[in-house]
């Protein structure tokens, strides 16, 4: 009988377990890409300012009017969207062999087309 050990860490206790605060933040900031763990960290570190009518704890507890809550959300420091583009590096000063490679290839193709007789015959064929 083999006993299996669960390597997945147990989730920490989450004060925002129902996720409604996260959804609210995503909606107000128009950032559906913001993952839960990032928002959880933002709230845990208190990276936002509370208004006069709504304290940080009250905000986290889900209290307050929608406009007051929206005002608090708009002071949150969240990371920018993570959507990178590939940026290939172009060589602007390639060596001559690279620079003229297409030209050389074209020249060789042309030669083969117009002068097929330039191809060397095998030695055995020549002696026959």
């Amino acid at each position: 009988m083999t006993s299996h050990v669960n390597l997945t860490p147990e989730p920490l206790s989450d004060p925002f377990a129902n996720g409604s605060v996260f959804e609210e933040i995503r909606l107000i900031l128009r950032r559906p890409d913001l993952p839960d763990d990032v928002l959880r960290q933002t709230l845990a570190e208190g990276r936002f300012t509370a208004g006069t009518s709504l304290g940080k704890d009250a905000f986290v507890a889900g209290e307050g009017l929608p406009e007051d809550r929206a005002a608090v959300i708009r002071t949150m420091i969240v990371p920018p969207p993570r959507h990178g583009l590939e940026m290939p590096a172009h060589d602007l000063n390639p060596p001559l062999s690279v620079r003229f490679a297409p030209l050389v290839a074209r020249w060789q193709r042309t030669l083969q087309t117009i002068r097929p007789q330039m191809k060397r015959a095998p030695a055995a064929m020549r002696s026959r």
Partner: peptide, 11 residues
């Protein structure tokens, strides 16, 4: 600028 493009430019 390239760093911005490679992290957030696609958005």
């Amino acid at each position: 600028i390239a760093d911005f493009l490679q992290t957030s430019g696609g958005a």
